[in-house]
Design a protein around this nucleic acid. Structure first.
Length: 422
RNA sequence: GGAGAGGUGGCCGAGAGGCUGAAGGCAGCUGCCUGCUAAGCAGUUGUAGGGAUAAAACCCUACCGGGGGUUCGAAUCCCCCCCUCUCCGCCA
């Protein structure tokens, strides 16, 4: 959510920059709404000031045992007027709030202007895509032949876009989770958390998934709860409505959770395999920083995610999302894309974003500078990494001609020393 | 699920219709004092919205878990909801 004053004072500039995101940045109704709000507020406050003054007078008269009935009668009449005025004011306030909740974040000045993912510049690459002496297979075929992935049975249980990991596949997934968490906690300075996998709507409001993107979520029937689409939601909301002393920043959390997404509107995309699932595992990194430090921390956080890929020996590239391809709440986002030989392309495996104070304002997360006034802090998060897609990348990058898969060295301690699957 | 207790400022904690934005304490800030540290003394310190101003000072409004109600006036009375704690039941 943008700051009301900031929006009021920079309306044209903000509108111009939001337009670069494409689509939904319509601020045309704002001026009128803002004026209406101000008018009602001023009227209501004037009446209230009067009421307070008269009430005090009445109190004084009563204490002196004098007659106050004339004033009381007068105020009874005023009361009705105030009540209707307040009803209107509350309605406008709510309208304003709903409006603000629907406005996306303003892209940072370093974000390139563009229409869609084709306009995302590659900012760096690591590793060389391996040349295979044979035609490399996709993970689906490899996994099914090895008996570690079973999509058919997953379908019987849960339908399309679910997966069933068996035997060494399940172990590999678990190994990846433990490996990632260990690296982030022991080497990158993150504190591990294991949050709830269901959250209230207010938490989703705080991080920006609600109110606009309800159709992407799974709701628990009869409850105000949703399955989390990412650990970002419960972990960022750990500190909602808190004021954190500045010397405690930055705060860095890492969390493993399953993630649940309806994938509405993705029909026909990635229908096969582990790439796009209704349920998948992810290790997430979340940071709370001072406004001054957030862009430096974004670079660190992105590098922390890249580090996992480097240790696993998986080639990747980092792209900077252009204005047209960014998420609703983000001010700047890097996507990390891992090389998948089976598909012959780079595919997203992590998304690292700085939200500036957009989420903090919604969730009420502030920092108190030493001796100063509280202000909203900055929040960041990134996948470190999407576990299922990492498993795909390992199967495809480490496949051998006979269909077996070498276990990357970094993972072997987590795989009972196993060097090869199959 | 049943029974009780409770949710007040950065924190602890009083207040039980008007004189309360809220005593007292802690913490913070400023000054004094003191070889240093600690202690002591005095002053000061909530958040948000609006008005005023060159900027302040200043003025108004709201906020005592959330929402509604009663009243001229609500932290205080009434109703609904949420959360925490204790006991009982149930359960991994």
């Amino acid at each position: 959510m943008l700051d009301l004053k900031f929006l009021r004072e920079n309306l044209e500039e903000i509108e111009k920059r939001l337009k670069t995101r494409g689509g939904d940045a319509d601020l045309s109704g704002f001026k009128e709404l803002d004026a209406k709000r101000k008018k009602l507020l001023t009227e209501s406050e004037t009446l209230k000031a009067r009421r307070n003054a008269v009430s005090e007078e009445i109190g004084k008269l009563k204490r002196e045992k004098k007659d106050a009935s004339a004033l009381v009668a007068e105020m009874q009449e005023e009361g009705a007027k105030l009540k209707s005025l307040d009803t209107d004011a509350a309605a406008v306030e709510e309208e304003m709030n709903a409006f603000l909740l629907g406005v996306p974040n303003v892209p940072h000045s370093s974000v390139p202007i563009g229409k869609d993912s084709n306009d995302n510049p590659v900012v760096r690459k690591w590793g060389e895509p391996k040349k295979f002496a044979f035609s490399p297979k996709e993970h689906t075929e490899l996994g099914e032949k090895l008996g570690i992935l079973d999509f058919e049975r997953a379908g019987k249980i849960s339908g399309a876009r679910f997966s069933l990991l068996m035997g060494l596949g399940a172990l590999l997934e678990r190994a990846l989770i433990n490996f990632m968490l260990d690296v982030h906690t022991t080497e990158h300075g993150y504190t591990e958390v294991l949050p709830p996998f269901m959250v209230k709507s207010s938490a989703l409001m705080g991080t920006g998934q609600l109110p606009k993107f309800k159709e992407d979520l799974f709701k628990i029937e009869g409850w105000d709860h949703f399955l989390i689409p990412t650990a970002e939601v419960p972990v960022t909301n750990i500190h909602n409505d808190e004021i954190i002393d500045e010397e405690r920043l930055p705060i860095s959390y890492t969390a493993f959770t399953p993630c649940f997404r309806s994938e509405a509107g993705s029909y026909g995309k990635d229908v096969k395999g582990l790439i796009r699932q209704h349920q998948f595992n992810k290790v997430e990194m979340v940071k709370f920083t001072s406004p001054e430090a957030s862009y430096g921390e974004l670079e660190k956080l992105t590098d922390n995610a890249e580090d996992i890929l480097r240790r696993l020996g998986l080639p990747y590239q980092v792209v900077l999302l252009c204005t047209g391809d960014m998420g609703f709440s983000s001010a700047k986002t890097y996507d990390i894309e891992v090389w998948l030989p089976g598909q012959g392309k780079y595919r997203e495996i992590s998304s690292c974003s700085n939200f500036e104070d957009f989420q903090a304002r919604r969730a009420g997360i502030r920092v108190r500078p030493k001796g100063g006034k509280p202000r909203f802090l900055h929040t960041l998060n990134g996948s470190g990494l999407a576990v299922g897609r990492t498993l795909v990348a390992i199967l495809e990058n480490y496949q051998q001609e006979d269909g077996s898969v070498i276990v990357p060295e970094a993972l072997r301690p987590y795989m009972r020393g196993l060097e090869k699957i199959g």
